[in-house]
């Protein structure tokens, strides 16, 4: 539930908790760092462009890690790049979020066995909040992952650790199969 959905009275007064305001501000302007590593970056750029228009979520890429809240690891992380990724992550101010996009950055992807030069999962070097499967994931999947990050931010409270927020998110998550099945029967009928 977005904050604006609560409705604003004639006096422009709104009573809510600090957590709500902070979370709303954070999730409505997630600025990812503008960098791509392989073919996933093409899908990421397509998602940023007008057809999928990430700016409607307040998401638009920044050119500096110091201005970014979110790191989208879009593509194959080579061993050579791994150290740079860590450095970029460390340069981001907190609170920061990491979305691992595509099979390569999730687990090494097609390079898992013979890719001597590929890091088998970016979670070996930085903590990952959301994994988006696919090779590469379609823009819809990436948007799904980004909305998962927004949900995660919604779970946050002052004094609550990231691990607890992730646990809360996992508990609150809905199995989409029922929704898909329901939609399918409606369409079929």
């Amino acid at each position: 539930m977005g904050l604006l959905d609560a409705g604003i009275t004639k006096h422009n007064m709104l009573v809510t908790s600090v957590d709500n305001v902070l979370n709303w501000a954070r999730l409505s302007s997630l600025w990812p760092m503008g960098f791509g590593l392989a073919c996933c970056a093409i899908e990421m750029m397509a998602t940023n462009a007008s057809n999928y228009d990430l700016e409607r979520f307040g998401i638009f890429p920044r050119s500096s890690p110091r201005q970014s809240d979110l790191m989208i690891v879009a593509g194959t992380v080579t061993m050579k790049m791994a150290e740079r990724v860590v450095r970029l992550y460390e340069q981001m101010p907190e609170p920061r979020y990491v979305l691992s996009m595509g099979s390569c950055s999730n687990c090494g992807g097609p390079y898992w066995e013979h890719g001597y030069h590929v890091l088998k999962g970016v979670d070996r070097i930085i903590p990952v909040d959301v994994y988006v499967p696919g090779c590469p994931p379609r823009p819809e999947s990436l948007i799904g992952g980004l909305m998962k990050i927004q949900e995660l931010i919604r779970m946050e409270q002052i004094g609550l650790s990231r691990a607890d927020a992730l646990k809360k998110l996992a508990e609150k998550s809905v199995d989409p199969r029922f929704i898909i099945e329901r939609e399918r029967t409606v369409v079929g009928a």
Binding site: M79, E113, Y116, K120, R124, I125
Partner: peptide, 20 residues
């Protein structure tokens, strides 16, 4: 040298595990 037929990948690179 990675493309030699007898190449064995190193276990660690700068403290990061290399094999799957």
């Amino acid at each position: 040298y990675p493309l030699r037929k007898d190449y064995k990948v190193q276990d660690q690179y700068h403290g990061i595990k290399v094999p799957y």
